[in-house]
Every structure is written in C-alpha cells, then in structure tokens.
Design a protein around this nucleic acid. Structure first.
Length: 882
RNA sequence: GGGCACAUAGCUCAGAGGUAGAGCACUACGUUGACAUCGUAGUGGUCGUAGGUUCGAUCCCUGCUGUGCCCACCA
C-alpha cells in the first residue's frame, strides 16, 4: 500500500535506468538521440534540464515503441571557457602570470576534468536522463583526437581547409583569434573625434573623424570619395599624421562616404576590416601597432609603447588637444564587437590562421534542408539556418590557446607546412619535400575551435573513422534536440561536416526548444540573481514533477517562464496520480495481464476504456509530433477529468456500498461479485495504461506506480484489438453527467450546502429511460446529493434528454433571482440559436457550406430550442411558486 | 537597414475557417477513509489595430502598432 503522502524523494533515488538505456534490440529499427554534450565546466542548469528532458522523452517513447534506441551522452572540452576558468583558478592560487607553461596548464585541466566530469553524469541521472552512460564520450578523448586529426587532414587534402594570412577577430584577453560567431555586438557610449591632418606644405588641412584616435599611428592614407567635390583638390597630395609627422597620401576610394563623419576617412588597414579591404585595393602598406594583448608595440612613438589601447587613446586625445589639432569631440552611440567569452572589445588583426572553406561545405547542407531530408521543428528555424549558410564566410578554426585539439600541421625550418595525421607522416612528407632526413619539424602551437570537434559529434560518437556497425546503423537515424542559439555553432556544422565525412545527413529531425526564463520573462543570469537551479527544484518537487512541468510548458516556438508555482501544478498532478493508485489499492484493484477489455460488459467500464483509448491515441500522436505539451496535457485530462472526476466517483459506491451494488448488478443481470471484479480489473488496467504513456515524461513515478499495481513491464498500450461497441455507454454516461451536473449547479445557485439533500423524483420519458434510472438511481443520489422519494411537494423540473428530474423546493430560495438567472440563460440560448438560424436561412450559406456544417447547424438549432423550452418550463414553474 | 517570431480571461499559455479553452488567481460552499498538493459550482474574453478574401475570419492575406530575437552596417 502506498503512503498517504506522495513524496518523490521516497522512491526516485531507488530507480536506475542504466539497464534499459544500454539494452540493444538487435532486430529493431535503430534510433539515436544525440545528447548535446555539456561543457566540462558547466553545472546542469535549467536550460539543460529542459533540453535533456525533452530528448529523454523522445528516447523513452521510442523505446516503448520497440525501437533500438541509442541515447548517446558525452561531454565537451569547451576550449576557451575551460582554459579561462582553470587559468583563473591557477592564478588565484598564487602562480604568477606568464610563468604558466603549456604542460602545467594541460595537466591542471585534465586533473580538474577528472574530478568534475562525474558531477554532470550524476545530475543527469538524478533528472532521470536515460543515456547509455557506458558509452560516455569526451570531445577530447583518444578516439576523438584520432577522428579530428583525420578530418583535418582530409579537409586539407581536398582543399577545403587552408592556412591564410588574413584579418580575423582577435580577442586580446584570450590572446587568440575567434570566429565570427563568437563576436557579440554591443552598443556603448563613445566619441567621435575630429582631427586636423595638415597638408605636407602646411598650407591647408583636411579633417578626419575617428572613434579610435590611438590608431593614427597605423594610418597609411586618408580616403575621400571620388564623387566628393569638397576634397578633389587634396587627392594625390600628402598629409601629415599628427604626433608622428609621418606623411600619408590622400586617395580616392568609394568606401569613403561623403555623408559620414567629415567625408574624409583615415585608413588603418591593420585595425579595421573595411580599411583592410581599402588597403588591399589601393596596395597600401599595413602597419600593425598592437601586440597580441592589444598593447601598443614598437611601431608607435616610444612614450606609447607597451601602453594599453584605451590608455593610449586618452593620451593621444590629450596630446592632440594640446597641439590644437583636435577640432571637435562628439558624443555618440556606437556598436562595438565584444568577445562572447572574454567580454572585452575585440581587435581586428591580421595573422596566420587556419580556415575552413565553409561556403563549399554549406552547399549540400543547404540542399539537405531545402529538399526536406532534414527537418527543423518548428519549421521557421530553417529560415535562420539558410540565412546564415547562404552568407557564410570562411571559418577560422585555429585558436591561440592550449586546451584543445592540437593542429596536425608541422613546419619545416623554412616555414613549409606539412599537414599529416602523425608526426612520422609529416616527416615522410618532409623527406620527400626536402629530399633529406633529419629536417627539424615543429608542430603548430595552436589548437582547433571547440566546435570543430563538436561538429563531428554525430559520427565521432559512433567511432568514425572506424567502420563500425553502429555507425552504419545509427548515423542518419538520429534526432537532435537543442536551443536556437546553437543552430549556427553546432547544428549547421554537424550537417556540413557530417555530409562531408559520411556522404549522408547525420540526422533527420532537429527539434529547437525555447529558452527557459524566470517568471517575469527575463533571461536568467547570475548577475540578476534570478537563476533557477533544476536540482533544487528536483529536491523540492521531485524530478518527475520538474520533467512533467517542462514538458507541459514546451509549446513549440515559445519560451518557458519558469517558477515554483508552475512546478507545483506538475507536482499536484503527480500527487493526484499517486492517490489514484492508492484508491485502486484500497479497493483491491490489481493489474491482470490477461485482462481482455473486450469482455467488459458494464457501460461504466466500457466508457472509461473508451476514454483511455482516445486519450492514449492522442498522446501517441502528440509524442510523434514532438508536442510534449499536448502529451502532458492529454494525460492530465485523461487522469483527472475522466478517470478521477467521473469514473472513480461512479464506481466508488458500487465497490464500497453493497446495497448499491445489488441494485446496480441487478440492472445488468450481473452477479454482484462479478461486477465488482469487472470494475477492479478495468480500473487497474486503465490506470496502468495511462501511467505507461506518462512514462516518457515522468519515468520514476510511472515505474513506481505501475509496479504498485502489479504491472512490472512498461510497454506501450495496444488498443488495436479492442472491438467494443461504445455508443450506448457513451450516451448513458453523458446523461448521468448531465443529471448530476444540473443538480449540483442548481444546488449551488440555491446556496445549499452539499450535505443537504434534495428530495427528488426522476421520471423517465421512455421505457429505456426508466430502466436507466432504475440502474443508476443510487449513483445519482450519491453524486448529485438527492434522495429519491415517491411523492414530493412543490418541485422544480430539470428537463434532461429522455428524463425529467423533479427536485423539491421550499420557499426559502430567492425565486426572483433564480428567475432572472434562468432568463439570462434563455436569452443567451436564443441569441445563439438565432445566429445559427440566420445562417441556415442564408442561401449563400446553404449553397456553399459543407453538408456536415449544415447538419451541425441544424442540430445546434434543435438542441438550443430544446434547452430554451426546458428552461422556460423551469421559469414558469418558478413563477408559479410566487 | 534586412529578416524571423509573438500579440487570446487578472497572470501563464493552448486552440480551431462554422457556439472561445486549460492551469493559476479570484468568488461561494464543502474535510470522519484516494487526494485540501483536494472536491463542487461560479465570476471573468467585441481573440492588438485597420483593411481585404469568404456565405461566414479570432483563425487565411495585406498594412499598422507594440514586444522579443537574429543578421548586417556605423568615420
């Protein structure tokens, strides 16, 4: 027997899903769920909880449906994030900056990784995520290293990966190049300084406006628009850079916009993407004035050397002012690029980097989605995917950090590059190239962008480049569930790299979930202090309740506003379910696996089987379409509204009061014991079916409760063989509900306490109705709160389909008020009936509306008319009482 | 500047070309055995705005307003 109190903690910890997660079903259709690997630095946050819960629901649903499910877990090495974090810890422990070696850092990170990677696994288990942990992978493990190296070499061999000297986004804090995607634009307050550049002869000057006066040391020209007549006279002449007196030419270039600034723009090819292009076009030199920390280097006057860029800016402005060449300072809003990890302003910088020709890889990736081979859910995210891939630029994959996949490239003494899968291969190449042994090769110091290895996740986890059986079996039969924010970072790259390496799409469906926000709709952040910890929620309400709530709230394309209150709704539902089983147990219901619904005879039992059947087929449809919200809602309604509110209340008196049972059993020519058994079997069976379809969403309680009822196995319910005719049962239960609801409603409007009972007489209009009344009168008495008597005094009729219920009324009620209420109801009905009739009288409607619609309108008019006359009858009866 | 999404009850959100739904909140009544993490009955909405298509639009189309997001540019 279950405890009176539902406490998730009392049983959730007792369940492990390791066995089902690692069980293979050899002959079955393969299906893989690819868990987006969390960063080793990360704790499980609520966003993970959502993401992983949804895919766990998919995995569990597929398992129930008999698929061979591989739910692949793993952890991402998260290059920059991890290195920054561990460096910070190392420096905090007293190690001096600059003394840290590559070996020491890597050792520390590995040590740190070994100690922290278990945390996430435990957290996932607590949440009930049924990954196959025996296959846990790491993006930097040996297999991954081999695969990544192979991929790099292949791409290079095919000319899709190359080394280039180009302008990239440089993060001065990390001291590394980063990709375009890692740049976040932010609007900040800035200034526009107008600076006077004198002509060589000192007789005239030109004014340039800049937001970055410190870069004047890197200026190589001043550009004006060819169509700008104001500056025609300057073109071809030289101007003098203030503070350094270097001469630079005034050139014409259409990049200069006469509308912007002064129309004359200083050109600093080393420190601006546009200027870089202008420089290339006009064959201008490049003067880089920064080092890798964005401090000024030897190219600038001595007093500025080693100075930070912002400090230099102030200093330059000061000096310009003193020299009276600063003509104006405007306050402006400007948008600057920041590093998403470091948070510092980025510098464009020309360096040697490795690039992937993403444009070529993108083409088949675009096609795969255009042709519908890969489907985004919700579909509109495809737009975003196309938008990015169609305008994709070369992907800078090298990073000047230490934590990551070392780039498999070696350099000869003359700088000749050898890309190879191993150092010995590189040496072979060098031997061929130089024609001699013992050439000293040095491996590239850099590592790869973390997303390079993440992008290979769908096939790396299946042991590519080995030709494994799993690779054939599961690749392409996958689903990825993730957030929109990594469509570019991850999803697009997996598709590009997957198609390149495997000549086939990695997965068919990409489900994009929303963002979890706080209850006010704000993004969660540590600084705002509004972060909700899923593990705290699990402790408080149970993992099942958290999972249920996340599923319940996952409407496609919507963000989720999370709060304790909404989890309470989930928890309350599970409590209800708990009590359903408790009730079943108290009434001797035990799951019987040989129970055949087709042998059920009693209408109440037939009805609940019908309800369960409908609910479950709708739930299945919902799971199929990734409508986790619908699935959760449907089960909620099936359990609460059909099973608890009606069925259990109907059968309660039969099971618990033998006097009632006699009457009801007689009505059906049933043996009392048989009737009870029928009910117990049906109830246990229906509950188990409903609990089973809840299993994907809330697995712990599902297992717990089905076990309590004696159903050990969790399988998907099968209703295919049910041949019952439900029509009569549905009609009867509808009438029962109608009678009971009407009486209750009447009672409330009379302000009668539920304990007080109406005396009532139930008159059947027809023979069938009479027998119906005979059968159910005890249930009606109990549930509606009436006492059937032979004769009553002054009464109010409740006119039902096929019966009239007369309830005895004394004069204490406020008749006027009741009349007014009923009159209002009549008015409403008339309004609706007339609207329907108006349409039916409209010739255009009759000609163009479908037959079903017209039939439905006719029925509506009938039903409403009947209701109107019934209510008017009641009103007349009330008026007669006055 | 280009694009995407959203706008339905006090709140959070479902929904369908043909009578507007749920949960929470609120009101009233109710606790000796499934459940107060509950029950019963209620209150509450010209479905953002202006047009169009249609016999019929809250739903489809267009414009507008507001909100959120993505991309690009900025001397």
């Amino acid at each position: 027997m279950l405890d009176k109190i539902f406490d998730a903690k009392s049983f959730e910890g007792n369940f492990s899903f390791d066995i089902e997660a690692s069980t293979r079903v050899p002959g079955a259709e393969p299906f893989m769920v690819l868990l987006p690997p969390p960063n080793i630095t990360g704790n499980l946050h609520i966003g993970h909880a959502l993401c992983y819960t949804l895919q766990d629901i998919v995995a569990r649903y597929k398992r129930l449906k008999g698929y061979d499910v591989l739910f692949q877990p793993g952890v991402d090495h998260a290059g920059i994030v991890t290195q920054l974090l561990v460096e910070k810890q190392i420096y905090a422990s007293g190690v001096e900056r600059g003394t840290l070696t590559r070996e020491k850092l890597l050792k520390e990170i590995w040590f740190w990784k070994e100690n922290s990677s278990g945390t996430i696994v435990n957290q996932l288990r607590k949440l009930g995520i049924s990954c196959d942990f025996s296959r846990q992978r790491f993006t930097l493990d040996e297999k991954s290293k081999k695969a990544v190296t192979k991929m790099f070499v292949n791409l290079h061999r095919n000319g899709l990966l190359y080394r280039g000297h180009r302008m990239v986004n440089w993060d001065p804090l990390i001291g590394s190049a980063i990709s375009d995607l890692e740049v976040v634009e932010k609007e900040v307050d800035g200034h526009l300084w107008h600076i006077k550049y004198e002509l060589e002869d000192g007789k005239d000057y030109i004014v340039v406006a800049t937001t970055r006066p410190e870069t004047i040391f890197g200026d190589v020209a001043v550009a004006v628009n060819p169509k700008d007549s104001r500056y025609k006279k300057f073109v071809g002449k030289n101007v003098r850079i203030p503070l350094v007196d270097r001469l630079i030419p005034v050139i014409e270039d259409s990049y200069a916009d006469p509308e912007k600034g002064t129309g004359a723009v200083k050109i600093t090819p080393a420190h601006d993407f546009n200027d870089y292009e202008v420089g290339l076009r006009n064959k201008l030199p490049i003067i880089d004035i920064f080092n890798d920390k964005a401090e000024l280097n030897k190219e600038v006057p001595e007093m500025f050397q080693g100075m930070d860029r912002f400090e230099a800016r102030n200093k330059v402005v000061d000096l310009l002012e003193k020299k009276e060449v600063l003509l104006k300072t405007e306050n402006i809003k400007q948008t600057l690029p920041f590093g998403d990890r470091s948070g510092v302003v980025l510098e464009p910088r020309v360096t040697y980097q490795w690039f992937v020709n993403a444009e070529k890889l993108a083409r088949p990736a675009i096609r795969a989605v255009k042709e519908g081979k890969i489907r985004f859910v919700p579909k509109h995210w495809e737009n975003l995917y196309f938008e990015w891939l169609e305008n994709i630029r070369p992907w800078c994959v090298s990073r000047q950090i230490w934590w990551g996949h070392r780039i498999p490239a070696w350099y000869g003494p003359d700088g000749q590059v050898f890309v190879a899968e191993s150092e010995s291969d590189a040496k072979q190449q060098a031997l061929k190239f130089y024609g001699k042994h013992d050439v000293k090769l040095v491996q590239d110091e850099d590592v790869l962008d973390t997303w390079f290895s993440s992008g290979m996740w769908p096939f790396v986890t299946l042991d590519w480049p080995e030709n494994s059986e799993d690779l054939h079996r599961f690749y392409s039969n996958m689903i990825v569930v993730t957030g929109f924010d990594i469509i570019f970072f991850w999803v697009a790259r997996m598709i590009m790299m997957g198609i390149y390496a495997m000549k086939d799409i990695p997965f068919k469906d990409v489900y994009i979930h929303g963002l979890v926000r706080d209850k006010h709709g704000n993004k969660m952040s540590k600084s705002k202090g509004n972060v909700i910890d899923p593990l705290v929620l699990c402790d408080k309400y149970g993992a099942d309740a958290v999972r249920y709530t996340l599923a319940y709230m996952s409407s496609p394309g919507r963000d989720i506003k999370m709060s304790d209150q909404v989890v309470e709704t989930g928890r309350n539902f599970l409590t209800k379910l708990w009590n359903v089983v408790r009730f079943a147990q108290m009434n001797g219901c035990v799951y019987n696996e040989h129970f055949d619904p087709n042998e059920v005879t009693h209408p109440l039992n037939k009805w609940i089987i019908f309800e369960a059947k409908n609910t479950i087929s709708a739930v299945e449809e919902a799971y199929k379409n990734y409508r986790f919200d619908d699935a959760a809602r449907l089960i909620y309604q099936g359990v609460w509204n059909s099973l608890c509110d009606w069925y259990m209340e109907f059968v309660k008196p039969i099971l618990q009061e033998s006097a009632l049972t006699d009457t009801i059993a007689e009505g059906y020519n049933l043996d009392q014991t048989l009737l009870k058994k029928d009910i117990r079997d049906t109830m246990a069976w229906v509950i188990v079916q409903l609990i089973r379809v809840l299993y994907p969403i809330s697995p712990f309680i599902s297992k717990k409760l089905s076990g309590e009822l004696g159903a050990t196995e969790v399988v998907w319910p099968n209703f295919d063989n049910i041949r019952l005719d439900f029509a009569d049962s549905i009609k009867q239960v509808q009438l029962l509900k109608e009678i009971i609801t009407s009486v209750r409603s009447l009672k409330q409007s009379f302000r009668m306490p539920p304990s007080e009972k109406f005396n009532a007489v139930l008159e059947g209009n027809t023979v069938e109705a009479s027998s119906f009344i005979e059968t159910y009168s005890k249930i009606i008495e109990k549930m509606a709160g009436v006492t059937f008597v032979n004769n009553i005094g002054m009464s109010l009729p409740i006119v039902l389909s096929g019966a009239i219920l007369r309830v005895e009324i004394d004069r204490k009620i406020d008749v006027q008020k009741e009349i007014a209420n009923f009159k209002k109801e009549v008015e409403n009905c008339i309004k609706m009936r007339d609207a329907a009739m108006f349409r039916l009288n409209n010739e255009a409607f009759r000609n163009k509306a479908t037959e079903e619609v017209i039939a439905e309108h006719n029925t509506r008019v009938e039903v409403l008319s009947e209701k109107i006359s019934k209510t008017e009858y009641i009103i007349r009866s009330l008026e007669a009482m006055q």
